[in-house]
């Protein structure tokens, strides 16, 4: 199960990949990038391509973040 969040978050990167992000008043550390993909969205309405990261957090949780231009969002949280 997962929950769509889709909220802006603060992300710190290393070598282009997220290293940690700030969520509910605390930093969540990225242990591993499980998957990474791009999505174009509704290009005919001028949507820009987003890069999605599915990450395994140090505390064991699984999250999806995406980078839209220069802005990071937490997209989904897996239970």
């Amino acid at each position: 199960m997962s929950k769509i969040v889709d909220q802006p978050v603060l992300v710190v990167c290393e070598n282009g990949n997220p290293k940690r992000f700030f969520w509910i008043k605390k930093w969540v550390t990225v242990k591993a990038v499980i998957d990474k993909w791009n999505e174009v969205g509704r290009w005919w309405e001028d949507d820009k391509e987003k890069t999605f990261y599915r990450i395994l957090a140090g505390e064991g949780g699984v999250y999806e973040l995406y980078l839209n231009q220069k802005h990071w969002n937490l997209y989904r949280v897996f239970d």
Binding site: V33, I34, D35, K36, W37, R54
Partner: peptide, 8 residues
Amino acid sequence: SLLPGSMS
């Protein structure tokens, strides 16, 4: 590459 599941 860069599709969901491509890495694995």
